[in-house]
Design a protein around this nucleic acid. Structure first.
Lengths: 393, 393
DNA sequence: GGTTTTTATTTCAGTATATAAAATTAACTA
DNA sequence: TAGTTAATTTTATATACTGAAATAAAAACC
């Protein structure tokens, strides 16, 4: 049990400031936390001794004693993150400040939970070879679908074709805390702590791939809703009595905006002899090929992104009107399209969203976002809930 | 300045529990706050001495010493709330537990800020006659429009026809802290603390009248967004390229769902000899008359509510998919329609929202919601930020 | 009816955290 | 070299929180 609640929160407060605004010196931490400099000295001493943070030399030269900057340390505590999707498993090791220490990726075909988790454990073991096991603080796993992260269950995953899969049992052999999360929330956390969202407190992260959902950051933390069902962006209605969606309803955003919808449109066009330079080659890389052709200036493809962008723009305008975010990050597959999709999106937003229009950017962590974000799950848990175990001994 | 941050937060914690779950005894407070019983005794002693809470006798009879229940006290601290809208000014006095001590309402026609605030001050003085001025903790004012509550400015109000009105100067004569807030957020706060939302932490409160917006409650507190622009529910697009909205765009929810849109539809029908028993009488009470006719079973009116309800249902389904709220409260003018609108709304929601479908209810505070919520602004500020001033001396 | 059990609350001594104020350190400057 | 400025640390102090024991107040038991 936590022996003293206040001490815990003060330490977390300081760590939070260092994470968000580091490198930062003790004086500034004191100001930001409204703790006294004396307290900051006490806390940072402990944190340095336990290896969470370290001092780095300052070169700036004003008058007075030079401030000593503090940053999260990447040396003593490492976290592992694994992204599972239908085509591959991606693993990373990151330090507390989000630096990627190692990364590995394996392609997969099989898709039974048992097979996939077996490959995941192989990947985990490969990643941590030669590492001091004491430095590993946890393993986070990002999985597309409906996740019960508290009970470590995959309730449903359309992409993987899973239903009611309990994750914990598969990882019994691994002697480190395990965390699972829905892939888009993992991406959101990754971008918030270590990516495009650093220093922001209210942002939305759009995970657009086969499905489309939104990671919601409110006052610096991820909002999942009381039943973890928040962020079902794909099924908001943007056109009453519109196109039929896979969910059975009509006019859902996902019916218009998803890699599948785009691929379908393109293939339809090709089949009907549309004027385009696109011809499908690798079954598995269709979307990437479409983007490639689009970026070369293919009018047919450009038009499709124009259309899709308009729908996505309406969806984002709705989000802006509701959430008034500082920033919107476009992530996952669709983000690969870059300006191809961003341009029409931004144009539509200007028409439909009430000002202020937030910045809209693509993912900074790119294809590693989910794995990094998953690793961040363990770091977050450590910094917010498990600190005492490290500070006590 | 707050002398000791930790003490402050513990006291607030305890007060919060008493507010949300009171009447409640010290033992249960200790469990809920994870403070020790000893600490709870200390804190509650202080709170009793300063008149924030009081003990009430317990009648239940189990084994063991009877618990002593604690509740917020209505005796020593009172808050005034005033709602300003285009047709009337409504004032209430409430105690800390939300009990309405007094209420008054005046009709107005004039609408210059100066006139309206003059009437508001008259109302204020009338409300507080014979009261011990020391017991008054503040005055909250709810105003429809875009409010800068920090700087106490009305940036824009379509309903009142105001732009850039600084509120503070008008109330210089009043010697109590003043708070202003957008009317829907005030309603939301009122319902959350003292109305249909008691004990809930994640809910949405739909303020539907001439305009339509949503008060968002996340983890027990109201989310306004970094620029106070969150909740612009009226301008989310539910039908791409749909009906033109006053804002200039097409397909906004507000174009379909608002008292104005309903009145317009009804009058149109009457003009075109629709088969209906409705005939407009009092220019100012049109909407109430429509509801009255509808509740009598008039098919024409019922159909209109059916149509409008379908649009509102789609809007709410979108909110449910995004926010996964525990509860949705329908408030303001449209709430007066009750089941007339709730039935079609619920039906549409079942079609378009992903489960779990939250409870959907109408405002509990009714026409006093905004005034009560405005008064709550002062109470909230007192409990969260001004406690030390009372506990110190 | 008195004793025991149960539960709620309070007392009290001890611990530890935060603070203010003063001291120290470490730079630059005149 | 002394003076100025700014960052950090030291020190003594105050106090919030806790655990454990004590007390209070009820019902249950014999």
């Amino acid at each position: 049990m936590i022996k003293n609640l206040n001490r815990e929160t003060s330490i977390t407060l300081v760590l939070d400031i260092i994470r968000k605004y580091g490198p930062i010196n003790r004086c500034k931490i004191a100001k930001r936390t409204s703790l006294s400099p004396a307290t900051v000295t006490n806390i940072t001493d402990k944190l340095i001794k336990t290896g969470f943070i370290c001092e780095i030399p300052t070169t700036i030269s004003k008058r007075g004693r030079r401030p000593i900057n503090l940053v999260l340390s990447n040396k003593n505590h490492l976290s592992i993150g694994i992204e599972i999707d239908s085509r591959r498993i991606t693993g990373v090791i990151i330090g507390l400040s989000g630096d990627i220490v190692r990364k590995e990726r394996v392609d997969i075909n099989r898709s039974t939970p048992k097979d996939i988790f077996k490959r995941s454990i192989e990947l985990y073991n490969s990643l941590i070879r030669n590492l001091d096991k004491k430095s590993i603080i946890g393993l986070g796993i990002g999985i597309p679908g409906l996740i019960d992260s508290k009970n470590k269950k995959v309730l449903f995953s359309a992409v993987l074709g899973w239903k009611d899969v309990s994750v914990e049992e598969f990882f019994e052999a691994i002697d480190t805390p395990i965390f699972i999360e829905d892939n888009v929330r993992a991406i959101t956390l990754g971008e918030l702590w270590y990516g495009a969202g650093i220093g922001r407190d209210n942002l939305l992260c759009i995970g657009a791939g086969r499905g489309i959902s939104v990671g919601i950051v409110i006052d610096g933390s991820i909002y999942s809703g009381p039943n973890d069902r928040a962020g079902e962006f794909g099924h908001i209605v943007v056109e009453k009595d519109g196109k039929r969606c896979k969910c059975g309803n009509y006019g859902c955003l996902e019916a218009y905006v998803s890699t599948e919808a785009i691929i379908e449109k393109v293939l339809d066009g090709v089949k009907n002899n549309a004027y385009t330079g696109f011809s499908p080659k690798n079954e598995n890389e269709l979307f990437e090929e479409i983007i490639y052709t689009g970026k070369k200036g293919d009018k047919f493809i450009l038009n499709i992104f124009e259309e899709v962008g308009e729908y996505l723009g309406i969806g984002l305008a709705n989000l802006i009107n509701l959430f008034n975010p500082e920033l919107i990050i476009l992530a996952d597959e669709l983000a690969k399209a870059g300006d191809l999709i961003l341009e029409p999106v931004k144009r539509t937003i200007r028409l439909h969203a009430l000002p202020p229009i937030p910045e809209i950017v693509t993912s900074k962590l790119g294809t590693l976002a989910c794995a990094v974000g998953s690793a961040t799950l363990a770091i977050k848990e450590l910094l917010y809930s498990r600190l005492d175990r490290y500070l006590g001994g």
